[in-house]
Design a protein around this nucleic acid. Structure first.
Lengths: 103, 103
DNA sequence: ACTTACGGTAAGTCATGGCTTACGCAGAAG
DNA sequence: CTTCTGCGTAAGCCATGACTTACCGTAAGT
């Protein structure tokens, strides 16, 4: 059920921007905020959400905190997607055919 | 940029439930509403969002509308995920190493 | 020690969006 | 033709959440 958190985390545009900024390289909160049209506290709050969705992780670097992408959240999402790919497609088209005949 | 709509569509729990109900077999709006704790109009509105995210499609069956899963939305999401998988990981860990040394 | 820089948290504001009821339209049924 | 069933849409309500400013703790620099 962990993919739910990932969906809500990445549903917000600002949060996606932050996440995609980390895609290039790890960054501090200040750096991330500079690249966004919102305040630094806002970025902090977004990072909290992203972290609890296991999409990023942050570790102290002296005075600052360096955030980087974590793949666990993405992995959960990938598994969710995969489960949709193979299954339910035969039973599915069969059901369509059945209902069409019913008309 | 179409994955954005997919994220927002699947971020809502009710919408995910509806989507996953369609995973088994195509269903009408009434059938979907019966399986959810919300009203039928609410389900209609959710289906509208899911449809514009290309996650489902509906076609008239006489009096009713039969909705079924459409894979385009999922495909866009999958591509987005894939782009995260390979790239940016070498440059990424290199950057971590660089910053650690800077301390 | 004092000051400055960085970042997390608290509190409050405002917009978004998910829900409801009410309504209207189209197809099926009688 | 009238009635009933199934859905979509409109309008309005209310909770959630994204943002702000203000504040506090901690590490670094002087």
């Amino acid at each position: 059920m962990a993919y739910a958190e990932v969906f809500t985390a990445l549903a917000d545009p600002t949060r996606r921007h932050i996440f995609e900024a980390l895609r290039e390289q790890p960054r501090t909160v200040g750096e991330l905020a500079a690249g966004q049209p919102v305040s630094r506290p806002a970025v902090s709050q977004h990072l909290k959400v992203l972290e609890s969705a296991r999409l990023v992780s942050g570790e102290p670097r002296g005075n600052r905190r360096l955030y980087s992408i974590k793949r666990e959240g993405l992995e959960e999402l990938r598994q969710y997607l995969e489960s949709f790919w193979s299954d339910a497609l035969s039973a599915y088209s069969a059901e369509i055919a059945r209902r069409i005949k019913e008309e």
